[in-house]
């Protein structure tokens, strides 16, 4: 029992939880900024950029907008952060001492939704028109991108007869896995809010989207949540590919390589496209998302 608690705390705080998740997420975010810059012929930010962005925001004074409940103002990013840390701890990355039980996939899905929900509420409570528009868009987009996301995960679960993430990580690579990874990737574009689905945080039209009134520490927590979200969602795709390997170092290497490839593909899409309108994004996910889901389910059941 005692051992279990130590393992759980290790998983929450170090690997794959807060610390390594943040470092990995910052690395991935730096890589996406650098890669987009290189695709545009620019130099791009230095390696440590997201790290210093976070610490600078910590060091700034926080202004609470007029008429906003301060408790709510601080609580929303903290709840989002805590749920994403718990979700990360559930991720069966190689070498994780984490918690694993039957049905943790369901918990993971719920925990992934928490920061999004907090974002939407944050957009509404800060009483800014731009944030409200952003929150509306995010809420609409959530309904859209969860279709391929949940479809792919459920299809895999049906195929493996288990809702346990560890079985996902141990399963061999098949056509169903690859199709599921593609469906997850399509959902990832909207989950990370990159072009063409950077609709909720569209800088050119709605200033800074949901976080327009957030500043200082709460904004830093939102940024940290975004970094952790990035490493979680990219890691979720990566763990589908580490099944066939036995050595832990090999598993880690494959995990890392797949994550980097996913980020590179995301950013090629981001650099090569323009922002869609929210109805077009919705239509995209409800046609191509359904198509991808049907394909994955078919592959999972038949092959």
């Amino acid at each position: 029992m005692n051992n279990w608690w130590i393992n759980a705390i290790l998983a929450l705080l170090f690997w794959p939880g807060l610390l390594s998740g943040a470092l990995f997420g910052w690395f991935l975010l730096w890589m996406s900024r650098k890669f987009i810059a290189r695709l545009q012929g620019r130099q791009g930010p230095p390696f440590y950029q997201p790290f210093f962005d976070f610490w600078k925001l910590i060091g700034k004074k926080t202004i609470i907008p007029n008429g906003v409940n301060p408790v709510l103002f601080y609580a929303l990013p903290i709840i989002g952060l805590i749920s994403i840390i718990f979700a990360l701890a559930l991720l069966p990355v190689p070498g994780s001492s984490g918690i694993s039980f039957e049905g943790d996939l369901v918990l993971l899905i719920y925990l992934i939704e928490m920061p999004v929900l907090m974002d939407v509420i944050a957009g509404y409570v800060t009483r800014s028109v731009y944030a409200q528009v952003g929150a509306t868009r995010e809420a609409i987009l959530t309904i859209a991108y969860n279709l391929p996301f949940l479809g792919a995960l459920i299809a895999l679960a049906v195929r493996l007869h288990s809702f346990k993430l560890a079985t996902f990580a141990a399963a061999p690579i098949s056509i169903a896995t690859i199709l599921a990874a593609v469906a997850l990737f399509v959902a990832l574009l909207a989950q990370l809010k990159v072009n063409p689905f950077s609709i909720p945080n569209a800088e050119q039209e709605i200033v800074a989207g949901i976080h327009v009134e957030y500043n200082g520490l709460p904004l830093a927590l939102f940024e940290l949540t975004h970094a952790l979200e990035t490493s979680l969602l990219v890691g979720l795709i990566s763990i589908l590919f580490i099944g066939p390997f036995t050595s832990i170092w090999m598993k880690l290497l494959i995990f890392f390589v797949v994550a980097v490839v996913v980020i590179l593909l995301t950013n090629i899409t981001a650099a090569g496209t323009a922002r869609l309108k929210v109805q077009h994004a919705f239509k995209f996910y409800w046609t191509w998302g359904i198509a991808a889901t049907v394909l994955v389910v078919a592959a999972a059941l038949i092959l």
Binding site: R33, Q43, V207, A208, V212, E213, Y214
Partner: peptide, 20 residues
């Protein structure tokens, strides 16, 4: 691309609340 403020970490922000 020519001058790229991002190489020194500068980013153009849309909201004054995010600004230094």
């Amino acid at each position: 691309p020519r001058y790229d403020g991002e190489q020194i970490g500068a980013v153009l922000q849309g909201s004054p609340k995010h600004t230094d």
